[in-house]
């Protein structure tokens, strides 16, 4: 601490940054380690269903449907992102 710091109001607080980064990485790794099979199995089935009903070709499915799992505090969030290529291409 130098002379000038005594009068400086804003201090850098990298400890807060460290904690926030750790919260994210730890929760992510915990989910991945605790239920790797469940999530990948679910992911495969969801992809199959989406492909079937939206008529997305098998080779395109990976880039148009994204399944993510995230832990937020006490809850796990399963996120499903489907890019519809074109409303008209949806088959009934």
């Amino acid at each position: 601490m130098s002379w000038i710091d005594l009068f400086r109001k804003t201090k850098s607080n990298t400890a807060v940054t460290a904690k926030e980064r750790l919260q994210i990485v730890i929760s992510h790794e915990r989910t991945r380690n605790s239920q790797p099979d469940l999530i990948s199995a679910m992911q495969t089935e969801i992809l199959t269903i989406v492909a079937k009903y939206l008529g997305i070709p098998a080779d395109k499915i990976q880039e148009q449907v994204r399944v993510d799992v995230e832990r937020r505090g006490e809850h796990s969030v399963l996120e499903l992102n489907i890019t519809l290529p074109d409303a008209l291409s949806v088959k009934n």
């Binding site: 201090k11 850098s12 607080n13 990298t14 400890a15 460290a18 904690k19 750790l22």
Partner: peptide, 16 residues
């Protein structure tokens, strides 16, 4: 160091 915001506090580690 914790007081200066340069080190993770005990409470942070316990919480994590």
């Amino acid at each position: 160091r914790v007081e200066n915001g340069d080190m993770l506090a005990l409470s942070d580690i316990e919480e994590l």
